[in-house]
């Protein structure tokens, strides 16, 4: 089962090897009751397919949208989600947690 963070990295390599456009998202910082620990990965391809998680479902949608832009322009970026953030509130991080996610393209 593709569940661990290391499996996600293998999937990222395999997807890229198949010629798919691939972005990797990594939780780099958490505060409060964040659902996924630092180092958690989410891999996204150009078609919006994804594996893994960075939040247990709360902000994946927003990360996938950003990942499409990262795949497009190749510029890595840091996303921040938290209770102070309207997107995160809508996305469901109402637990009080805050996370920072680094999104990069696999070249």
């Amino acid at each position: 089962m593709l569940s661990t963070d290391t499996d996600i990295l293998s999937a990222a390599e395999a997807w890229r090897g198949e010629g798919r456009a691939v972005a990797l998202a990594t939780v780099i910082e958490t505060w409060g009751s964040a659902p996924r620990p630092v180092g958690s990965h989410l891999v996204i391809d150009g078609g919006g397919n994804f594996l893994g998680s960075v939040s247990g479902g709360c902000v994946e949608g927003a990360v996938i949208v950003e990942a499409a832009e990262v795949i497009e322009d190749g510029r890595p970026r840091v996303l921040e989600f938290g209770v102070a953030d309207e997107t995160a509130w809508r996305a469901g991080l109402s637990c009080g947690g805050r996370i920072r996610v680094f999104v990069e393209r696999i070249d």
Binding site: T6, L9, A12, R16, L24
Partner: peptide
């Protein structure tokens, strides 16, 4: 991330060797 760095990281894991990716 460069594909060769990702492949290197995965190769170290497969060989049961520790590695750190610095970003």
């Amino acid at each position: 991330m460069r594909a060769d760095i990702l492949a290197g990281l995965n190769a170290e894991r497969a060989a049961r060797r520790a590695a750190i990716l610095v970003t």
